[in-house]
Design a protein around this nucleic acid. Structure first.
Lengths: 122, 122
DNA sequence: TCCATAATTAACCGATTAGTTAATTAACTA
DNA sequence: TAGTTAATTAACTAATCGGTTAATTATGGA
């Protein structure tokens, strides 16, 4: 996988790595802090590897503080994704519209009581 | 990879599949239409597999028309991604800000140089 | 200096992925 | 009915991925 964007998407295609990002979204954390929620499920070297994937994808940066490695989230990698998404805005916004239309029918239903009258959702 | 979002990100982590989505963003297309740009690089069964990945990820839908299989883009899959991205908005917007700050320095330099005065574009 | 802690590296393994070729299914057409 | 086109399925392979255990590096403290 040569290109940067593929690496980024690939890094995000794993729930463990997304959970790590979620934790980092609340602030910097060392490797062992990040590891803590997962150590029942996997070893520390597995964590190291996941973090390396995130780092190479440009989604986090790692620095040094004595024997600790504080990690922080890196907006650049995420920006690459939203930039790519932008060209499909018309499609995912159409989905929002369908959701909106659906919610409208739900509200209509509630107003009518149990009559169950609804507009067609297109 | 059990969860839907992982499948979606994974499907997007391939340049061939992203190119197929790009083509589909310009309108419906059959499998052989979609295959055309790639047949120098890979076989038709490989295309079939890529499309199956996109379909299972909820990024496209396939229908039937005689022996053809018209495919179209499906906004739902993309919406899952933008929904997930939303929680990191503060981070990728910070990246936009850094870009903006950088552009400001470029503009400032130009002003100093050739008196190329311009308003910022946003 | 010796030990504990934080993290990484090395070597390995099974499952999945991305591709192949060959065969097959399904629909139209002469 | 026989042939052609569109697409999929089957069976296989090489490379990558996500994990393991054991060993190693690097830093701080008693």
């Amino acid at each position: 996988m040569p290109d940067q964007l593929s690496q980024t998407f690939s890094a995000l295609a794993d729930p463990t790595r997304r959970a790590m990002l979620a934790q980092l979204s609340k602030g910097e954390a060392n490797v062992s802090d990040l590891a803590k929620p997962f150590l029942k499920d996997m070893s520390l070297p597995a964590i190291t590897k996941h973090l390396k994937v995130l780092e190479h994808a440009g989604l986090i940066t790692k620095s040094r503080d004595a024997q600790w490695r504080p990690c922080k989230i890196n907006g650049e990698g995420l920006k690459d994704v939203v930039d790519w998404m932008e060209q499909y805005r018309v499609f995912w916004e159409a989905s929002f519209d369908r959701l909106e239309a659906y919610l409208k029918t739900v509200v209509a239903k509630e107003k009518k009581g149990k009559k169950n009258v609804r507009k067609k959702t297109k």
